[in-house]
Amino acid sequence: MELLAPRYRRHPRDGVLITQLVRPLVRSLYAVGLDEPLGGEFGCSGRFASHCLEQDIWNHESARFAIDLWLRTEAAAERFPIGQIWRPISAPVGRATLRDVVHQVVLAVIESLRAHESFWRNANAISDLRTWGADPAVIPDITPWDFQALAEQARRDIVEITPLLEDVLEPGLFVGVMDHVNGAGPHLDDELWVRTVYGFATAIQHGRAALDHMADMFVPLYMWRAAAFMSDTSPESPAAVQTRLDALCDTFLRLKPSLVASWSNPGGTT
């Protein structure tokens, strides 16, 4: 193994940014069955460390934050063997705000996609990774948080930035998102969410607005999706929620060709 990433036994409703965005995106685009694409814990070989030090990344914004994502995607793109190891989950260090974290993750994802374009465009079937260690098996309880308040905040913000979203999203996608946002409760189905993520990636790639602005515009949409996921899954068992997560990953994979087509074609649609 050249890179060893952690694997945590989580409640499937925990780590929403991971489960709703980063994990399915990395799995479907890089075709690697990573559980935790983000996180400071990892181990690597000297060869991989030397390879990373030779890359032109250390003066980029990504090196300041979310370097963990870049390390994992770089290993996948350069075909370094990756493995996982069961680790006890620990609370995130520091007290970053959700807006800042989502903003930084968007920037890091885009940096990775741009750096590894030739790889992910052709990567297909997701390969499972070997896992070391003992599976804790017991699913921990989830820490409750107020997703209804997050939904209301997201709704207000999305309504405020409507003219900006209208500019950067395709008309059909924009109307679909606004229909959901103007609905009664927080809801955003998988397909529309994935198309929104790919639509944003394409819009950023084609420079429809400044990268920082695009990341800021994405934040309330993520907040809406996170609240919708929590609302939809609140009465469900962990097994049922896990099935939803697997289905979301399948949707990311199924719609990947639309991203590949539109990434290098300014007139393409997602």
Binding site: P92, V101, T143, L150, Q153, M223
Partner: peptide, 11 residues
Amino acid sequence: RERESDAAPHL
């Protein structure tokens, strides 16, 4: 203060 949602439950 209320708006600054903590990122912890999302990570």
